[in-house]
Simulated scan of single mutants.
Amino acid sequence: MHVDKQPCGLSPESEYVELAVEVFAMLADATRVKIILALRNSDELSVNRLAEVVGKSAPAVSQHLAKLRLARMVSTRREGTTVFYRLTDEHASELVIDAVKQAEHVVGHAPHHQQASS
């Protein structure tokens, strides 16, 4: 009996490959990465607070948040006229964390315990 050892969706022929590429494309923007990092450290933040944290204007951040919301990476809660954003789940945050760790390895600043031995 042949048992496929790769979980569903993780083979090169997976129907999810193109969708995974879209996820990476969504995160291929420094402002969006900063937004994800800011939200991973908070339960939720307003557009104005996120703008302060990422160093961009509120309208610019709002546009990025709209894209992240369409991609279902963030969700909202309204309180009066203020909209608060939060990560929908941990997956976008984990992707960004892994990308930052990869970047640390590329430039040689990864913590020693995470570097592979030669």
Rank of each mutant, 00 (worst) to 15 (best):
H2C: 00
F24I: 08
V100H: 00
L95C: 07
R32D: 04
T76A: 07
D4H: 04
H2K: 11
V61W: 09
L68W: 02
I35Q: 09
A20N: 12
A66I: 01
L70H: 02
D89C: 12
H64T: 03
V47L: 06
K34G: 11
E79M: 01
R86Q: 15
T31Y: 05
R78C: 06
V96P: 06
E104A: 03
Q6W: 05
H109I: 12
K5L: 10
V3Q: 13
R77W: 08
F84H: 13
N48L: 05
F24A: 05
H109C: 11
L87Q: 01
E79H: 12
P111M: 05
L39W: 03
R78I: 10
E44V: 03
Q63F: 04
V100N: 00
R40Y: 09
V54S: 13
I35P: 06
E52I: 03
P7H: 06
V54P: 06
S57T: 03
T76M: 05
P59V: 10
A38E: 15
L39E: 15
S62E: 12
L39G: 03
L95T: 14
M26F: 00
S118G: 11
S93R: 06
K56S: 08
S93H: 07
A92W: 03
L87P: 02
A66D: 12
S75Y: 01
L68R: 00
S11Q: 09
E18V: 11
S14E: 08
G108I: 07
L19P: 00
P59W: 14
V74H: 06
M26T: 13
D98V: 02
V53S: 05
A20I: 11
A25G: 02
T88C: 05
V21I: 15
R32E: 04
K101H: 06
A51W: 06
A51N: 10
R49D: 14
D98F: 03
V106A: 06
S14R: 05
E18A: 15
A66V: 06
D43Y: 12
S14T: 11
D4T: 05
T82Q: 12
L87R: 07
T31S: 08
V106T: 12
A66S: 13
H113G: 05
V23S: 03
K5D: 13
S93K: 13
V74W: 08
M1Q: 07
P59K: 09
L19Y: 01
S57M: 02
R32Y: 07
A58K: 09
A28W: 04
V17S: 08
A58G: 09
H91R: 11
E79D: 11
A110G: 11
R86V: 09
S11P: 08
G9M: 08
R32A: 08
S57G: 06
V23I: 14
F84M: 10
L68M: 15
P111K: 07
A103K: 03
L19C: 05
D43T: 01
A66Y: 15
G9A: 11
C8P: 01
A92Q: 00
L10W: 00
Q6H: 08
A60G: 04
